[in-house]
Nucleic acid binder design. Structure first.
Lengths: 241, 241
DNA sequence: CGACAAATGATTGTTGACAATCTACCATAC
DNA sequence: GTATGGTAGATTGTCAACAATCATTTGTCG
């Protein structure tokens, strides 16, 4: 009589690789590739995406490309015009203004939850990132600062322990990248301010002060938005309520 | 050199109807139809969606159906398993718990913004809805109360004046409908509490008290979540922090 | 010379067919 | 009787061809 030979493939198996290959269809691969190129800025905002060309480049037929377009449309990275094609989404100043508010609300929740749930390991990572941030701030090195900023908020989001929140946060940040990309380097003056903000946020989270961490993050995002807006349009910014 | 003959069709045209027909491709129509059926509950959570069957029912080929699936997948209404098909998404208790928190954060922002920007007309609509709510609450008529509740929050969202926020709000609420649908009628006891909440919210918005309106809405959503959770799982709820 | 109209080329929208994969059932061996 | 292996049917993944629509150019008329 054979004993229970229920074979559960242990993780670390090569079954891991098999599973990945099985889950990825051409549609998802095309989607990921296009998303990468858009977020990285290799496909500039407003660029027209030609189905046939992309299909030829990626060596697939138009079907998977079209399906990937629908997914990207829904996630806000491209906009579709019937019989005209799909274009990398242009985010106007007004839209970005609105999206920043949404991000602020999400980040506020991230702060509140992270203050309660963050692990010692995650907190150590944050402190390490902040340390590097101050180094970059001293030389106003925006090229070094920018990825640190991304990473800081990403770690914080993960520390919230809320998968739905993380997902929404990432989508919104992706949309904002479409707006922010072109104007990154211009805003080096505000780096020291931003770096100090992160200091305070880490302290609040470390203390477990949920309300304070939330409020600091909300204000941090809104301040960043307004600094960026002033950098882009110095004349119109001051009168804005 | 292209002569700038930018022809702008004036609004109020009959071009309005034409424009709608021009914008809707089969893919978008299929997407809207499926979304309607899912949110209405005609397609129960977990249902397998057969490409060929749906294509036959809607008298289109499989292509547009597949594209609609990708869009619905990205918006969280269905989940896709490679070579197995797409299924109406099942939202577990834990996921719903998380999504409710995201909704609470979005609603908090809605409250803050609406308190500043709401028009007299919108405020009148809210008061009218609340009046009807109290009528439904007196008889614990959950069938009448539910659509009023939807409408109340929809009007409030529009009053926020933030298109990106409204969009995110609707997506999250759509996801929650997948969870809430099955258990609506059970929770009639908490209707009076919910109705009083709406009273307070309207007052805060009318006063223009941004912070209070936000806090009331946040708590309102979280309270609703917890009441629903207690109704579903009376035993596990009390120990929850 | 400029404006309108028709035709041409390019691109998207849709469809049906083929290939790959999974599910269910049945036969066979122990 | 249970378990293993294989086969048949159904379903999804991908592709290429056809139809519809849009953009551009060319030609004609005023």
């Amino acid at each position: 009589m054979p004993p229970k030979t229920a074979r559960i493939p242990e993780p670390g198996d090569n079954g891991r690789a098999i599973e990945l290959l099985q889950r990825h269809s051409l549609t998802t691969l095309v989607q990921q590739e296009l998303e990468r190129q858009i977020v990285d800025g290799k496909l500039a905002a407003g660029t027209k995406l030609n189905e046939a060309n992309i299909a030829a480049e990626l060596r697939v037929s138009r079907g998977p490309v079209r399906e990937a377009f629908r997914a990207l449309d829904q996630s806000g990275l491209v906009r579709t015009e019937k019989n005209r094609g799909v274009f990398v989404r242009q985010v106007t100043l007004e839209e970005a203004h609105e999206i920043y508010e949404v991000r602020a609300a999400l980040d506020e929740l991230i702060g509140r939850l992270a203050a309660r749930r963050i692990t010692a390991q995650q907190l150590a990572r944050l402190k390490d990132i902040v340390k590097k941030m101050h180094a970059a701030a001293r030389t106003l090195d925006s090229a070094a600062y920018y990825p640190l900023n991304i990473e800081f908020h990403e770690v914080l989001a993960e520390a919230s322990g809320n998968a739905a929140l993380i997902e929404n946060y990432r989508r919104v940040v992706n949309e904002l990248n479409l707006y922010r990309r072109e104007v990154l380097a211009r805003d080096s003056k505000s780096i020291p301010i931003s770096a100090r903000n992160h200091d305070d946020i880490v302290k609040a989270v470390a203390k477990g002060d949920s309300a304070l961490a939330g409020k600091l993050l909300f204000d941090h995002v809104i301040d960043g938005r307004d600094r960026l807006a002033r950098t882009l349009h110095p004349e119109t910014a001051k009168g804005k309520k």
